[in-house]
Structure formats: C-alpha cells, structure tokens
C-alpha cells in the first residue's frame, strides 16, 4: 500500500506545478534582483517537493535523490551564490527593459496558451502512460519558454542567469512528467552542470562589472571595436 494515493498525488502535483508557473510569472512581473533570487529559490523548493511527492508515491530512489539535490543545489547553494554576487556588485534593480512589464506579462500569457497546444501532440502519444503527465507537460514547457523570454527581454546579467536557471527547472519538470525522471547519472550530471554554470556565470558577472562598471549586457557592444 503506497503512502500517497493516486488522487492526492495528482492534486498535489497540480498545485505544485501551478505554483512553479506562478513563480515564473512573478519573476516577469518584478524588478528587484534579490526578489528574483528569492523567487527562484522558492520555485526550486516547489520543484523539490513535487519530485519528493512522486518519489514517495512510486518508491523510486533516483527521483528521491534528484529531489534532495534540488533542495541542496537549487534551493540553497545557487541562491546563496547569486545573493553574494548581487551584494558585491551593488546592483539591486533591473531598470530599463527591452519590453516593459505589462507587455511581457501579456506575452507570457500567450506563451502558456501556445505551450498547451504544443504539448497536445506529445500527450496524444503519451496518454496511456503516467496519469499526471497531461497536466504538467504544458506547464513545464511554458516555464521553459518563460525562462527563455526572461533571458531575451532583460538586460542585466544576473537576470539572465535567473532566466537560464528557470529554463532548467522547466526542463527538469518536463523530464519528470514524461519519463518519471531521467536516469540518475544524467540528473546528477545536470545538477553539477547547473551549479558550475551558476558559479562561473556569477564570477563572470563580477568581472564584467569590474571592467565595464555595469552589468548591463547592452553596454558590451563596445567589445566589437
């Protein structure tokens, strides 16, 4: 007898996935860099809880490991690192946007609708598989695309890192929903990849700030000459 029954699983996975989508939207709607980091940490906690629920339900140890890694790496270490970077470069706010917040929010609303229709063909094939897939896949694709959109529309380097990490969260979620998680070795590889990427990118941001006295990537055009 599993500890969590199917209905509780589906309901809690739905709510957690929705929470992840909402944090992605909140990242779009805010300006403060420290708030981005906090939101990302919260998003990772939700993701960790989601994988924890699935791991307990199906008794899969590799998802459990992934959940623990999510808590340790994404919800704790990376936010700590990013906060340090933000502290050192003394930049607190995303000031000018390529696309303003209101329009960004509308575009992201459209992204959700788009990813729902994109996910449908995959779901047709997958229908017989796991029960929660149908609902989570469109959400995970939307989270990925919103992460990408953050990277396109924001100019500060720290925000771009947040966009990349959000995309990774979306990827993890979609992997979880379609395949019950990738093999452990792949998962662990991705985690260390992300950790090292965040580390290096953080250092980069610090260096960029030192040489250009700004972390606005638009200012880096002068590199061309």
């Amino acid at each position: 007898m599993p500890i969590i029954d199917q209905q509780t699983l589906v309901r809690s996975v739905d709510i957690l996935a929705t929470g992840i989508l909402v944090t992605a939207f909140l990242i779009i709607s805010s300006k403060s860099l420290t708030f981005y980091v906090r939101l990302f940490a919260f998003q990772s906690i939700l993701l960790g809880m989601l994988s924890l629920v699935i791991a307990v339900r199906y008794g899969e140890t590799h998802i459990l490991t992934a959940a623990v890694l999510t808590f340790v790496v994404k919800a704790f270490t990376i936010p700590l690192l990013l906060n340090k970077v933000i502290d050192r470069i003394r930049v607190r706010k995303e000031v000018d946007f390529s696309i303003n917040i209101t329009v960004s929010l509308i575009i992201c609303g459209a992204i959700v609708i788009l990813s729902n229709s994109v996910a449908q063909p995959i779901l047709q094939v997958q229908r017989a598989g796991s029960l929660f897939t149908t609902k989570v896949l469109p959400i995970s694709i939307a989270v990925m695309l919103i992460g990408l959109f953050v990277m396109i529309s924001r100019k500060k380097a720290v925000t771009q890192i947040i966009g990349l990490l959000t995309m990774e969260n979306g990827l993890f979620l979609s992997g979880l929903s379609i395949t019950h998680g990738m093999p452990l070795i792949v998962e662990v590889g991705i985690f260390f990849d992300i950790l090292v990427a965040a580390l290096i990118l953080g250092l980069f941001v610090f260096r960029i700030n030192k040489s250009f006295e700004t972390i606005d990537i638009a200012a880096m055009r002068s590199l061309r000459h």
Binding site: T18, L21, T102, V112, P138, I139
Partner: peptide
C-alpha cells in the same frame, strides 16, 4: 499600479487557461 493590476489580470487569465489544461 498598472503593473500590479496587470499581474492580477494575467493571474486570472491564467486561472481560466489552467481550468482547461488542468481541469
């Protein structure tokens, strides 16, 4: 203020979309 209200608008739009995705 419009940013905050737009967030509310998008959240409510999202909740309608999610009704059709998640049920």
């Amino acid at each position: 203020v419009p940013d905050l209200l737009m967030t509310a608008f998008i959240l409510s739009l999202l909740s309608l979309i999610l009704y059709f995705i998640v049920g």
